[in-house]
Amino acid sequence: MTVGGGAGGAPSAIDPKKLRIYGLGGALVGIYLAAILNSVLGTDIFSILAAAGAVAAAVMGANAVRRVCGYGIGTGVPSIGMLALGMGIVGASFGLSTAEQLGVSMAGVIIALIYAMVFGYIVGAIANKVMGFNIPIMEEGLTDLSGAGAMAIIGWSYAISGSLAYADMVAKVFNTGYLAIVFICGGLAILHPFNANLGPDEKQDRTLVDGLMVGSLAVVAVGLCSLATLSTIAAIITIIVGVAAWYYFYVWYYRLVKRDAAAVVGTGLLPPSAL
């Protein structure tokens, strides 16, 4: 098997372009479907769809982390995950706030995504041009990461607030402090998969399934938070779906770990002559 994590980038079975479409598309579809179904049917039980969309974005972010960190950035993987969420939180609050001021709260997600991706591209360009990283995919990777961070924050925040309106987001997610949970759980879903699986035998499918697993745990966490803000039934649906998804991906991840683990061969004790 080829060596991942060396210069030239990590090998991948799933094309990053395809993952980007799945990640961003999944996040946008999830958040908007949740927003439309919730407002049309006058309920909040579809908030789980936004949380699932956020998981898709986080997996895309995890793939961007493994692509960029495969070149070696010298500071450890967590720094880039925190950067992604830092850029994401600015993009998310700017997008939602601007959309509210323009009077179209539904457009907030798109504004946040565009701002976050443009800012990610600029930070990537700074890293390459000013700091001299010379990583060919730095701009692309940070664009993905920043977009993933913004989508993860909005998706999981929506699963707590049950509404895209900025005032609801501020009242139920920011002022309550639940955003800190979204921040750290979302950051873990993006940075932990590569941090835990890196090494010469890193494989894309194992890393991404780890991302799905940690993302599902984040769904459970936001489900617990939403007990205080949404109807009990909506919160319980989020928690149950999160736990079920976590179990499913945990079993899958365990299978992949066993597949990739080096074989341990019993060689017996040392022969008596060697003692």
């Binding site: 500071t75 969420l85 609050s93 700074i126 002022n175 921040f183």
Partner: peptide, 25 residues
């Protein structure tokens, strides 16, 4: 809004801290 300002400030803070930490490798 204290909580919004604090979280936004953390976002700006992290971006600058990570850029600086990349600079010192």
């Amino acid at each position: 809004n204290p909580s919004l300002s604090a979280l936004f400030a953390i976002g700006i803070f992290l971006v600058n801290a990570v850029l600086a930490s990349w600079n010192i490798q």
